[in-house]
Computed example of a mutant assay.
Amino acid sequence: MANTSQSQKRARQADARFEINKARRSRIRTYLRKVEEAIASGDAEVAKAALIEVQPELARGVSKGVLHKNTASRKMSRLASRVKSLTA
């Protein structure tokens, strides 16, 4: 347990940030799952629309510090190539 008032406050802040970041990660994963499901179903139009929706969510995750920049970039690249292969 935290001893000083400052460390107690930091512990409270850490708990609050954890909850916020958990919600953000969950939201990002939901959008990623929508793209994955659209790709699995083979519907190129739905997959393309879902890909457009997930892009700002990934960027927001990077700007908020939930995801590393390269991780988001890698996910976007791989999803985009898979969606592109549906239309080809």
Rank of each mutant, 00 (worst) to 15 (best):
M1T: 08
M1H: 12
A2F: 15
A2L: 14
N3Q: 12
N3L: 11
S5L: 13
S5V: 10
S5M: 11
Q6L: 15
Q6C: 10
S7T: 14
S7H: 12
Q8D: 12
K9C: 00
K9T: 01
A11R: 15
A11D: 08
A11N: 12
Q13V: 07
Q13F: 06
Q13S: 05
Q13H: 09
A14R: 15
A14Q: 14
A16V: 06
R17P: 01
F18V: 08
E19M: 15
E19S: 14
E19W: 15
I20K: 12
N21L: 11
N21V: 10
K22G: 09
K22F: 12
K22E: 14
A23Y: 13
R24N: 07
R24L: 07
R24F: 06
R25D: 01
S26P: 12
S26M: 15
S26A: 15
S26Y: 15
R27V: 02
R27G: 09
I28W: 10
I28S: 07
R29T: 03
R29E: 02
T30I: 10
Y31M: 05
Y31R: 11
L32V: 08
L32N: 03
L32H: 05
L32P: 09
R33Q: 07
K34N: 11
K34V: 06
V35S: 04
V35K: 08
E36T: 06
A38G: 02
A38M: 07
I39S: 01
I39W: 03
A40L: 05
A40F: 02
A40Q: 05
A40P: 02
G42D: 03
D43E: 03
A44G: 01
V46T: 00
V46Q: 00
V46A: 00
V46K: 01
V46I: 00
V46D: 00
A47D: 03
A47S: 05
K48N: 01
K48R: 09
A49W: 01
A49N: 03
A50M: 02
L51H: 06
I52N: 01
V54W: 05
Q55N: 08
P56D: 00
P56C: 00
P56Q: 00
E57R: 06
E57W: 03
L58W: 06
L58Y: 05
L58R: 06
L58I: 09
A59W: 08
G61T: 04
G61W: 06
G61P: 04
G61L: 09
V62H: 04
S63V: 11
K64C: 02
G65I: 07
G65W: 09
G65N: 04
V66Y: 03
V66W: 02
V66K: 02
L67H: 05
L67R: 04
K69W: 10
T71Y: 10
T71G: 04
T71D: 02
S73A: 15
S73Y: 14
K75Q: 13
K75T: 11
K75C: 04
M76D: 05
M76T: 10
M76I: 10
S77M: 08
S77L: 12
S77W: 08
R78D: 03
R78E: 05
S81M: 12
S81K: 15
S81P: 07
S81T: 13
R82S: 13
V83W: 11
V83D: 06
K84G: 13
S85C: 07
S85F: 12
S85D: 05
L86P: 08
L86F: 14
L86H: 12
T87Q: 10
T87R: 14
T87H: 08
T87D: 01
T87A: 10
A88F: 02
A88N: 05
A88I: 01
A88D: 02
A88V: 02
